[in-house]
Design a binder for these strands. Structure first.
Lengths: 144, 144
DNA sequence: GTAATATTAGACCAATTAGTCTGAAATGTC
DNA sequence: GACATTTCAGACTAATTGGTCTAATATTAC
């Protein structure tokens, strides 16, 4: 199975984007997220805890508690989330799996894959959560 | 861990390319491939058997036996190999993991990812094994 | 202070992917 | 025909990822 991002990472992207749509500082519970996004409760809990530990989210316990972005939506990019969850190895390793592939010992698709990969990299770096929030049309993100 | 192709698929790409460098019809044993490419013997055996069953390779038993391309190198593309090993779901599914993402219900990066994905798709379709063979500089493919 | 509600921590289980091993079947050489 | 060499088939193990569960801790509201 070819894959770009792990399922964990997909869930993280969905959840952070959901948070980005709420007024800054609004605490959102796992319960609400899991309900709106259809992500398994405990699995999502682990992912959010991890993001909180890495400083991307802030969390608070108790009723009225939940998660919220730790930084302005404009300052959180796709890159930050992917980096935190999946890591960035895929931007530096050979697409054909050669361990020694590099500029002076390139594989047969090195340069062509290189520019595609740069396109992906650039998208990750430039798209922040505020950008994404503007483009949302999906019903699962609408109303509370 | 983000990934484009599974390890199986990477190994398949490496092995098929190796075969493409030999004169058409030359039988290459798993032993030679595993030695030159550093891929675990029995694992590679399974992958090659699978490719043979799917009609991409031809195989023969006994001494002087081995594997060879079932079609001219110009007619085997990256696309064929990826399709046979990993499948092509990643070209049709949402990069953020939304099950209902589509043209009339797009996710926030739908169109931008769409063009990157098309670039990948196009590379897979247009690069055939003969093209790749021409660009080889890697030492593991040199000499016998 | 008590109860309700939320995250936190970590052990645990299930499914998929990666990799190993063994024995059988086919083919070429002597 | 005997033997060496190869693929073939399938069971098996190991590692990673995906997902579940339980008990503890913090916070709010009464």
């Amino acid at each position: 199975m070819s894959v770009i991002f792990s399922r964990q990472c997909e869930y993280a992207l969905q959840a952070v984007l959901y948070l980005a749509l709420k007024p800054a500082g609004t605490m959102i519970s796992i319960k609400e997220l899991t309900k709106k996004l259809g992500i398994p409760y405990h699995f999502l809990a682990k992912i959010l805890q991890d993001l909180a530990n890495q400083g991307l989210l802030r969390s608070m316990k108790g009723p009225t508690g939940g998660f919220t972005l730790a930084h302005p939506a404009t300052e959180i990019t796709l890159f930050h989330i992917v980096e935190a969850v999946d890591g960035l190895d895929f931007l530096n390793t050979c697409v054909m799996g050669f361990p020694d592939c590099s500029g002076n010992n390139p594989c047969a698709v090195h340069s062509q894959w290189g520019s595609l990969r740069d396109g992906i990299h650039s998208m990750l770096v430039h798209k922040n959560m505020a950008d994404l929030a503007k483009e949302i049309t999906k019903p699962e993100y609408k109303s509370s």
